[in-house]
């Protein structure tokens, strides 16, 4: 069974149609990358998959491990293993990273019928994952994303992904605004999580990220549709020639 299957997806935001018949199949164990110019619908796709209320699906289907994803609330999708690394992680004053992740981890465990983790076990889990993405544990004591640098916010997204261990993760321009060192840390975090049961959809503007997270498939999104798909070399071709010849 495909991990994620998108069939003829149409979606709009603020009354404007952005996705216009998108098809995509992602098998477990694969990394897909979506590239495309601004306004082509990349972030809309990410938000529709995650279940943001502001994005309205007008027709089409998304099946996640055989389930109708569009029937599920955002939190149900998350508990079923869908994760979105946000392009613009939200600052939440007054909520510490600890409180936030504790609630998230235990919400998922409850949904899976597993026992909730106590403070000591959570702390152990956080320490282990913090090492993977080279994030300072002190950040967890602070309010979620508040006053974080751009790089810290993105690394915090990857840290959360490592802690929550999703089955399917969408990275929405996680590389934008990162210097090369931060980019490597993010890529290492993703690579360490590659697994035969897990799938990734990496949305990016730049081929650069794909030097570090080598995708199995690259898709070009233009005007709400996937206009071309190929292997990792397609990214290099786009880098050299831009999107225009592809869409033509």
């Amino acid at each position: 069974m495909a991990l994620l299957e998108i069939i003829d997806l149409h979606a709009r935001v603020e009354g404007q149609e952005i996705l216009k018949g998108l098809d995509l199949v992602i098998e477990p164990g694969t990394v897909h990358s979506i590239m495309g110019p601004n306004g082509s619908g990349k972030s809309t796709l990410a938000n529709v998959i995650a279940g943001h209320d502001a994005y309205e699906v007008t027709s089409g289907q998304i099946r996640y491990r055989g389930q109708d994803l569009l029937e599920m609330e955002a939190e149900e999708r998350a508990c079923a293993g869908v994760f979105l690394a946000f392009q613009y992680p939200v600052e939440i004053p007054g909520v510490s990273g600890m409180q936030f992740l504790r609630a998230a981890v235990n919400a998922r465990r409850r949904a899976a019928g597993e026992e909730e983790l106590d403070a000591a076990r959570l702390l152990g889990l956080f320490r282990e994952k913090a090492e993977v993405v080279n994030i300072d544990m002190a950040l967890l004591k602070r309010a979620v994303n508040e006053g974080f640098s751009g790089g810290e916010k993105k690394r915090n997204e990857i840290f959360q992904m490592a802690v929550l261990e999703p089955t399917f993760a969408v990275l929405d321009e996680t590389d934008s605004g990162l210097d090369i060192d931060a980019l490597k840390i993010v890529a290492d975090g993703v690579n360490s999580m590659r697994h035969e049961d897990r799938g990734f959809l990496v949305i990016t503007h730049y081929q650069r990220l794909l030097d570090y997270i080598v995708p199995d498939f690259v898709h070009v999104l233009m005007d709400g549709r996937i206009v071309r798909s190929g292997g990792k070399d397609l990214a290099l071709e786009l880098e050299a020639g831009g999107y225009a010849p592809v869409g033509a």
Partner: peptide, 8 residues
């Protein structure tokens, strides 16, 4: 939405 996307 950010909180809900994390499963809360």
């Amino acid at each position: 939405f950010y909180l809900r996307q994390r499963g809360i």
